[in-house]
Design a protein around this nucleic acid. Structure first.
Lengths: 333, 333
DNA sequence: CTGAAAGCGCTTACAG
DNA sequence: CTGAAAGCGCTTACAG
């Protein structure tokens, strides 16, 4: 009867009548090993059902072969980002470990210095503020920001102020003088999760509208699928929505979704009764014909991985800041 | 000038004039340590910015303090499941590492015996077939199936055949003799990702309809936000949709979403012109008023973690099969 | 091409 | 309450 414990490299060595160093070589495909011994070892590995212990490997090699990806929530948007990053890194033999900051518990875990996140070779942080998350105890790791910016760290980012400007210009191009302008946005709470992306989008939009002497009514909405709907409902209860065209900037597609729903329900038509633009270009936006501002996730992922690669190669200390252009996608609304 | 390397337990011991065993004790809060030495050690840890090496810890303690969660994709649905599992496990000091099988690459990684997944203390598999994923090389780990069933492993599952039955009964209760019945479903490819959930839902629905002598038109759809829409468009190009009421079972809410969109666009009304039921009860379903069959994710997560807890306690070998009841949620459609 | 040995940074009896 | 020492399963010079 076999022992219950998982077989180790020692067991493999014994069974194949070699030393552990040689076994290690064939496992890692490093160094020269004769065909004959190699086959003996492979056979033993197979028969034993041997699996290398990653902890031992990492401990002795000083490499984790993994990176962390910190994201604000686990939804479709970040799923896409994950996919692009994973695709790149998998080829390099790296694992990407996801850390969704879904609640206070997961935030607390990350702040604990004994957490897994501190064992990975680099930390990719998406859409979140390093300062807020880690406070003063920033991990002594390679940090790469994706979709946000911090002077102290490598950053791949999009100019959110510019997004607001683009949204304003789109709506202005579609409208005449006497129309109404609405800004439906999420009012971020000042806590550890705050990213300020909404704030910047708001500002870009508001500033541009002011420049064109347009008055804008701002409405706070919940960051949820019906957030935009409820905001519009509230607005329409005090303002007429049929008299003149309404132009709406929803600062993310999730909010845009709700707004679109609202207009549909009232049988109001895009271009005629309203215009609407969102941000993100999540998959569902295409389906509902929502005009939006696209965030090039693939490009961001590629750039982030590129920085990581360079880091691995020559440990260069220079910090890279790469700005990615967002793109207007005109659809029905 | 300080050394570049990360401080180890040895450095802490030296700085606090103790042994590494004692340092280990205060880090892990185990055993008795006098207040005085404890404070000295804590101070040293803080000054050094010491972080325990998890690989070393796992290697010597034989515990990973983590579990794997394998999911078919990274979207809102599994995000919710993750959240519930994580909430439970975090309190126990465990990390949950997500393995989204988004493409062939990620599948290949999992099959590699050297993968991270084999280092965790247990593997939770959601909505996927163990047989298909791991083939004959099933990991010698505690496997817990969430939302699927396998006689060989602990399973928390929902009866998908029964879901089909429930959907049929709902539509029958809303309809009269002469009406039309549509089944809009995803035709699973026979590959490693196949879970057969759709197949069982189809069967439960079809069998029940047959029992009631109703003819059903089945339409294959893409598993995407506009899958249901396209399916309906195809159907309506050859069949009238206005004459008599149409009753549709979309085998998941994502498909139901598209169907609902289609009817909206045609200005057709629920209960009057059509009835529609989906499955899953994803957040967006509530917003669009989609009648659906709810999957109790929280309950499933709790049960799965419960099994894991028992496993940790007494290493019991008995396999648990727990069936969870799905629940009809009636909304507008 | 191959193997014995040191060492990675911890935990855990063990002895005091 | 405390510390020296063995051991976890690997990788990597080093010597052959």
């Amino acid at each position: 009867m076999k022992s219950n414990k998982a077989p180790t490299i020692k067991d493999v060595a014994k069974k194949s009548h070699t030393g552990i160093a040689t076994v290690s070589r064939v496992i890692n495909n490093s160094g020269k090993v004769s065909e004959n011994t190699k086959n003996r070892i492979l056979k033993a590995i197979d028969e034993l059902g041997y699996t290398p212990n990653l902890h031992a490997r990492s401990l002795s090699s000083k490499k984790g072969n993994s990176i962390s990806l910190v994201i604000p929530d686990m939804g479709e948007f970040y799923g896409i980002l994950y996919k692009y990053i994973e695709k790149n890194l998998a080829q390099m033999g790296y694992r990407v470990i996801v850390f969704p900051l879904v609640d206070e518990i997961s935030l607390a875990k990350i702040k604990n210095k004994a957490d897994l996140i501190y064992q990975t070779d680099a930390v990719f942080i998406s859409s979140l503020s390093v300062r807020k998350i880690f406070k003063d105890k920033i991990p002594q790791k390679k940090l790469i920001l994706v979709d946000s910016k911090d002077d102290r760290f490598d950053s791949i980012y999009i100019d959110n102020y510019d997004i607001g400007v683009k949204a304003a210009e789109y709506l202005l191009s579609k409208s005449k003088t006497t129309e109404k302008y609405l800004l439906i946005s999420f009012k971020e709470l000042e806590n550890d999760f705050t990213s300020h992306v909404f704030k910047y989008r708001d500002e870009g939009f508001l500033d541009t509208m002011k420049k064109h002497k347009k008055r804008v009514k701002k409405i706070d909405a919940d960051l949820y699928w019906d957030g935009g709907y409820e905001a519009m409902k509230k607005y329409s209860s005090k303002n007429s929505i049929n008299k003149s065209k309404v132009n709406v900037f929803a600062t993310c597609d999730m909010l845009g979704f709700g707004v679109r729903n609202f207009f549909n329900e009232k049988n109001l038509l895009p271009n005629k009764n309203y215009n609407l633009i969102g941000v993100d270009d999540i998959p569902i936006s295409k389906v509902i014909g929502l005009t939006t501002i696209h965030q090039p996730l693939e490009l961001m992922a590629d750039n982030a991985v590129g920085i990581f690669k360079k880091f691995l190669e020559n440990k260069e200390k220079k910090i890279t800041h790469k700005k990615i252009e967002s793109k207007l996608i005109v659809r029905e609304t």
